[in-house]
Design a protein around this nucleic acid. Structure first.
Lengths: 180, 180
DNA sequence: GTCTATACGAAGATAGAC
DNA sequence: GTCTATCTTCGTATAGAC
């Protein structure tokens, strides 16, 4: 059910994701929601964002290789989700993070998730010989540009924005490794 | 009223922006909404996104100078909006673009807006001597990374993600102009 | 054009039976 | 734990008077 909530949050956003829709989508029983989620929708959204954040973190952990490989790997994670959902998808973490006025607690979880992702990627970059001071800023750029590109892809129903971002980030990586 | 709608869409998202809230926020009369917006909320959202897209386009037009200056100028446009709203703000265009399942027509407008922005910036870059083939991809990277960074800033209630993105984009610009 | 009143549905949440 | 029923609030939209 938490998985289903994460899917619907990505698809429709936090505010447009109703309790009932999550129940239908996951096939869970109607009568026991407030038994499992005493705090109601807020709690469900928080757990969904935590779940999605963890799931993506684990996929990020599996990315390895050179900086160019890392960029390709991260891009693939989001591209697969976008294409598999026929562009009717956005990152649930970003969706929750930009819905502060609707669900503040979930936005905090989203913020913490971004920091975790950035630190993980930064560590990978330093392992590849990138300057440890600059690595967090580069990791931040990767996450921001890919998250932004996913939104643009959905808006235009095209994969081009994401592909272009990945390509440009890889060119940037080339200038870093060649100058060392 | 269209302006007020754009503000609320950025703040709360498309689904969470109610007709009534827009009326309150703008002080417009209650009884004549369907006189001015016969198609209801959909029409209001579309016009709000068009309005916001045009307003930001005009600000983008005022950006000039070297590629580093252009990056700084674009970053400033979004930073000012973010800080002025105490991080309770997201780009209405991105918000509408990622709300396809809620308001498809508005998402199309958002998609077209991104293309317009990208083309404008790409033109500015070619004027500055950037390769005309690569310029669109660079412009795309700028928009994506700044839009994504704004979302991360709101999630973390910090300006750091945006500042880091601007700094990294400027470093990238440095490698381009020095290699020519 | 603008008002008030109202119909209609959706959504969050609670109560009590089984 | 799960069900059904219900309360309440909110949001879109319409109707008709002024």
């Amino acid at each position: 059910m938490v998985l289903g909530a994460a899917e619907l949050i990505g698809r429709n956003g936090v505010a447009a994701t109703s309790f009932g829709a999550v129940l239908e989508h996951s096939g869970a029983p109607r009568g026991s929601i407030y038994h499992h989620f005493p705090e109601g929708k807020s709690q469900l959204v928080v757990e969904a964002v935590e779940f999605a954040g963890d799931a993506l973190y684990q996929r990020l952990e599996s990315v390895s290789g050179s900086m160019v490989d890392i960029i390709a790997g991260i891009g693939d994670i989001w591209r697969i989700l976008l294409v598999a959902n026929d562009y009717e998808w956005s990152c649930p973490v970003l969706a929750a993070g930009t819905a502060r006025t609707v669900e503040p607690a979930a936005a905090d979880v989203a913020g913490a998730t971004f920091v975790r992702w950035r630190d993980l990627i930064a560590r990978r970059l330093t392992d590849e010989g990138i300057d440890a001071v600059r690595a967090p800023a580069l990791a931040n750029l990767m996450i921001a540009s890919i998250e932004g590109a996913v939104g643009m892809c959905r808006s235009t129903r095209s994969i081009e924005p994401l592909d272009q971002v990945v390509a440009e980030l890889q060119l940037l990586a080339g200038t870093l490794t060649s100058s060392t």
